[in-house]
Design a protein around this nucleic acid. Structure first.
Lengths: 295, 295
DNA sequence: TATCTTCCATAAGTACACCTTATGGATCGC
DNA sequence: GCGATCCATAAGGTGTACTTATGGAAGATA
């Protein structure tokens, strides 16, 4: 028991509503001939006339009249369903992001995005997994990595720079930090982090003897940041993530020397969806705020 | 706010129900590739993924899950609507017929048709208007006319023959009818009917002087037949319409001479619908019963 | 660990359905 | 009688919605 061609049903629905093929054609954006064709098709399929052709009008037959309300109802349901999904899909921006970026950069700034786009709700999914738009429901993502990804639009936000940071109290405990060597006097969080060796090499120290438990591994930089803020040791952190703490003096960056790996943070989204409004809005917002950092 | 392509919606509905593109393809009688294509199309149109592509399965996204029940509901409505119309359209045979044919031939025999086709209901529309299948809801029609009609399948049932008839009592009132002249002694119903002159010419009487009021015009032959049966006068009638009355002796046909015009009675229906089962059934039934008459 | 199977995506090619243009017929109104 | 309105039909082009073919990814199986 198959349905007749849906295109024909749609045409019938419109024609029945208008009681007029020409008007139905207008509504559907096609010619009157096409409407006539589709109705005829449907009538052949159903095996019964659906309209009586009177001189200057068409009138539903009994069968047609019984059919019409149902079809209208069905299309109303479809219209309603797709209208709301469009709304809801348009109105919610889902972001998957690395926890570090979420905690240190994104969340503190999200308020400004909301201000600019009051009609957009934001849903944040913070996960360390590599994101895959085919397997996760998300509109945009923040990734860290070295290169671009195929199939995705990739905006490089900034490189994952790093430099030692510590709390003022900790610095004061040894009378302030003047030279890189001073850091070696203090406990270091996650001394196994390769960033340390890279950075010390930049300042001319080949094999720094770091104090601290090698097994310390907080995993995410923002957790390390919390520890540093609490004065538990020196961390090697990415400055952009701690701008406000630096400005407010809660954190000290003793040296301008900044290491930089190949890793960068990226804003990414599927190429196919590059023109979805909410995605464009988010992209524009992120990029303009990244520009502010660089300035 | 236009709906996405309906074909795509239908595919989505099936895919959502099965949670499996391959099975959906089977149900719809198409290939898996086509399903994949349509879903992708719909997702682009909606602007959101509707399925998550997991390793060996697809799962509805949030948006897809919200959409799916509505689409299923809509299609259920359509399926139900078209299923019942098909039933009802298949189960009711609407016949438009000339009143004479209805009263004298069809109605007395309809019982046998019902017996042969118990699943078919019959609706009779008896009207003198020329029937036009474009303007009337009918499956088949009985017309009288001289030639075939374009666009219609036309089965000639019998010619509109005619011969004088009267009630036995009326005949007895003048001692029986032996020659055509005897008819002139009796009142004649509708003496203005051209059939009279034609018939009398056949029996060698050029200008019969008919008794009776020229203004008598019962219009339909079956009404004239009633009057004849009541003994109100001699009528000129079509024998096939009064077979049973003749057999039972309620009516007398004094002469075998039968006039015949060019007019015939036809069974007609639109060519396009010649293979609709109920129409074939009725045609077969009518034609076989007409054959009985001729035999 | 390797092989097979399942399930989906994608590319390329094709056919038919669907729509358009053009025309004609019928009726109503002025 | 003439124009306007509304639908039917024929002919013809085109794009969409398929198909076939292939490949990739990940369970299942052994």
């Amino acid at each position: 028991m198959n349905l007749p061609p849906l295109a024909a049903i749609r045409v019938f629905e419109a024609a029945a509503r208008h009681g007029n093929f020409t008007k139905a054609a207008e509504e559907l954006g096609m010619t009157q001939a096409a409407v006539s064709y589709q109705i005829k098709l449907l009538e052949e399929r159903v095996g019964t006339a659906l309209f009586l052709r009177l001189p200057r009008q068409v009138v539903l037959t009994e069968v047609g009249a019984r059919l019409a309300p149902s079809t209208t109802e069905a299309f109303e349901i479809l219209r309603a369903a797709f209208a709301t999904t469009r709304e809801s899909a348009d109105g919610v921006l889902t972001i998957t992001t690395i926890p570090t970026f979420a905690a240190t950069w994104l969340v503190p700034r999200l308020g400004s995005f909301q201000m600019e786009h009051p009609s957009l709700a934001v849903r944040l999914k913070s996960t360390r997994d590599m994101l895959d738009f085919a397997r996760q429901e998300a509109d945009v993502g923040i990734r860290s990595g070295e290169t671009k990804w195929p199939g995705l639009v990739c905006h490089k936000l900034f490189y994952a720079n790093f430099t030692p940071m510590l709390s003022p109290a900790l610095a004061a405990s040894i009378g302030g930090i003047k030279t890189p060597q001073d850091i070696l006097k203090l406990p270091v969080l996650d001394p196994g982090d390769p960033w340390w060796t890279i950075w010390f090499k930049l300042v001319g120290i080949e094999k720094p003897e770091l104090r601290g438990d090698v097994r310390n591994r907080l995993g995410d930089q923002h957790l390390e940041g919390r520890a540093v803020l609490a004065g538990q040791g020196v961390g090697i952190l990415t400055p952009v993530f701690f701008q406000s703490e630096l400005q407010q003096g809660q954190l000290i960056q003793p040296f301008d020397v900044v290491g930089s790996g190949k890793h960068a943070y990226w804003l990414v989204y599927p190429e196919a969806r590059r023109n979805v409004p909410k995605i464009r809005a988010f992209r524009d917002w992120v990029l303009s705020h990244i520009d502010e950092i660089k300035m």
